[in-house]
């Protein structure tokens, strides 16, 4: 059974009091390098039938109508679980090929950062 992920965030121009509270707590932990936090929602929706564009479009409509209130929130993303490598069904989605093969977003941007990641992994 495919799973579709819907991500919703409070509108960028609106104050996000929840994120502000989290940012305040982090600052109190001495994490002064963290400048801001915004808190959104991730829905993981199991659907029957094939993982195709039709069901994705159907869920996208539901996301606009119910999962988000477009007056105060934006739908950031509607995609099949595993496509982002996170969450339930990631393994199954990788196995079935229901996932992008583009891994460029995993790569660190600078040689220093890449070295740091290698060090961390070893």
């Amino acid at each position: 059974m495919p799973t579709i992920v819907v991500e919703v965030m409070p509108k960028a121009e609106l104050l996000d009091p929840q994120g502000k509270a989290v940012a305040g707590a982090l600052a109190r932990q001495g994490r002064s390098q963290i400048l801001g936090v915004r808190v959104g929602k991730r829905f993981e929706i199991e659907v029957a039938g094939p993982a195709d564009d039709a069901i994705l479009a159907e869920v996208a409509v539901l996301a606009d109508e119910l999962l988000a209130n477009l007056v105060i929130e934006d739908v950031i993303s509607v995609h099949f679980a595993g496509a982002d490598g996170f969450g339930i069904d990631a393994t199954a989605d990788f196995a079935s090929g229901n996932v992008t093969t583009d891994t460029s977003f995993d790569e660190a941007s600078t040689p220093e950062a890449q070295a740091e990641i290698r060090e961390g992994l070893s």
Binding site: P10, L14, L15, P17, Q18, K20, A21, N69, V71, I72
Partner: peptide, 17 residues
């Protein structure tokens, strides 16, 4: 009423949290 679109706008968490 706001969620049902009988009235415009929306209600969000208090700004002071």
């Amino acid at each position: 009423l706001a969620e049902a679109h009988l009235l415009p706008g929306g209600l969000i968490r208090n700004d002071h949290g």
